[in-house]
Design a protein around this nucleic acid. Sequence first.
DNA 1: AGGGCCGTATGACATCTGTCATCCGGCAGT
DNA 2: ACTGCCGGATGACAGATGTCATACGGCCCT
Lengths: 204, 204
Amino acid sequence: MTRTIKVLLAEDQSMVREALAALLGLEDDIEVVVQVARGDEVLPALREHDVDVALLDIEMPGATGIEAAALVHAELPAVKLVVLTTFGRPGYLRGAMEAGADAFLVKDAPASQLADAVRKVLAGERVIDPTLAAAALADGANPLTDREREVLRAAADGSTNAELATVLHLSQGTVRNYLSTAIQKLAVRNRAEAVRIARDKGWL
Amino acid sequence: MTRTIKVLLAEDQSMVREALAALLGLEDDIEVVVQVARGDEVLPALREHDVDVALLDIEMPGATGIEAAALVHAELPAVKLVVLTTFGRPGYLRGAMEAGADAFLVKDAPASQLADAVRKVLAGERVIDPTLAAAALADGANPLTDREREVLRAAADGSTNAELATVLHLSQGTVRNYLSTAIQKLAVRNRAEAVRIARDKGWL
DNA sequence: AGGGCCGTATGACATCTGTCATCCGGCAGT
DNA sequence: ACTGCCGGATGACAGATGTCATACGGCCCT
């Protein structure tokens, strides 16, 4: 063995974060040198610590793990990126790959895959679940335009058309047009279903 | 010290489950003797293993941690129950307490609280987050009737009134009446908001 | 220069949703 | 016996939502 692999761990839930650190701590060749709880703390932390692999949860306050990955990839390309998530959404996988991630793991995979992935990305390999990769390819890209996505996202909490129009600085008719096209593209019958399936695919 | 505390760990996401096991494994006086990934595997596992404390996640397939807790409390009252959850929803806390739980922890609490809680419940103490307890009391009990809850739950995926009527064997008008009263009880303006806040409070 | 897509907007229309009044039968409490 | 609540239902009405045709300016690609 050469030397220990230095890891940054980004995950907002303390208990899970520290548990994952404990898990990685069981490996002789891996050392968690820094932990953060927010997406926007990832890059600053990496500037201050010498890290080989960054392990990023997606759902975090401040910035998502995918957004953080994109920033790190641009500024510190030598750092390997492992994206970890609760939800194996095809759109997440696609987003992570486009952001320069080297591995994509779901949290219901066996724990052993975590340390494995860390070693593999450091060796230059990429690690992705083949089933999820297939699903991502089958689904194709996000069919929604930026505006449609914004409106759908804003509509997700049950806001009315009038509220959406105010918040987004659009006319009510335009809001309805966007929602209507989104509903058609997703092949569903109302905004609530549209929100559900867009969220499910990781397109929101 | 007397002897090691034997723990059952129930959590569906393997990576998190094994990470939590690793975390607890760092404690000299605690031993995870059995792990399960489904709510309906908890009671059978407890029948076969001698366990002091059961650690139950809420969101699990098969049965929720709260449902599992109620069954265990009825059949094996000697087993102490720690309910662990991602979402600190007041209704969850209330439900867990009514099911006989001895402790209620949220996953974004510091990791140290986990082992602490295990020791405390074994000593006969109860462990709950005071902030959450206050919120649960402030919110009062779930104001929805069984039927209103069922209809709201069924409506959560964006189903239309006609579909709800068919699935629930009700007339369309009745479906609308239930949704209407639910909307008023929750003081919101449409079903989508009603679903969101009911879910948020843990009333769904 | 023209075609295509996007963002934005309007008006008209049909349908869905939410509210309200009112009704019935059953059951629990007084 | 009476009251109140729940489950269930109907009909009428107002307002919200979804669809469609149509329009215009901007931008990219050919």
